[in-house]
Design a protein around this nucleic acid. Structure first.
Lengths: 104, 104
DNA sequence: GGTATTTACCTTGAACTGCGAGGTGTTAGC
DNA sequence: GCTAACACCTCGCAGTTCAAGGTAAATACC
């Protein structure tokens, strides 16, 4: 209904490229622990977004360890804008419904 | 993740008892067309909530036509409070993430 | 009188989402 | 040498949401 995980991923990646494990912790950080998305959510989401052409992956060796960095494509930026708009629409609608309800 | 449909249902029914078909239109009305939940969402939700003890149903004849009116139980009010709190948590977290992201 | 729309109920099957719990191997600290 | 953190990945379930159907009565329209 709201697509919150995807929205958060695209938002963060629109700022700077990051890798999966990093995103898991970053999301907890920027939401003040309120939203915790596990790796079981993050990794499949990243693959789906990459497959959809919204993200591009870049494998990079850091020492002997490999990380997969993701960044937004042009298509990804378009998608982010749409998700932001959707979110605002839903958020405001729910708030509106709350007020209308309280008043009625 | 957010349980928006259930939240809207419980909110509306906490104000006054209503029947399924009425709820479908009411939700469109109070959200300014932004959220449209079809009968395929509403009816199963109502049954589930009734089964969970959050709603009670009252069949009433209006003319020769029968309507099923739903209203909140005490358990339903508790559940509504929890959902409201959850919603605020998610909403604020997403907003917070947006700001943190824009600033960083 | 007949027909179309609206009211009102309900079900089904599928798609999509989200997640916990698992597994592998690497690096760092003690 | 051992434990904890790092970093990747997958599986299968459970829950949510939906479009599309179907029934039947009431109303509106011609």
């Amino acid at each position: 209904m709201t697509g919150v995980p995807e929205l958060l991923l695209l938002r963060l990646l629109s700022q700077e490229e990051m890798y999966g494990y990093e995103l898991v912790r970053k999301i907890q950080l920027v939401t003040g622990e309120a939203i915790k998305l596990g790796e079981g959510v993050i990794y499949p989401s990243l693959y789906a977004l990459e497959k959809a052409g919204a993200l591009k992956a870049k494998r990079r060796k850091v020492g002997a360890r490999e990380r997969v960095y993701y960044s937004l494509t042009r298509k990804g930026r378009t998608r982010l804008q749409k998700l932001e708009a959707d979110w605002v629409r839903i958020r405001d609608a729910v708030n509106l419904a709350g007020e209308a309800d309280a008043v009625s």
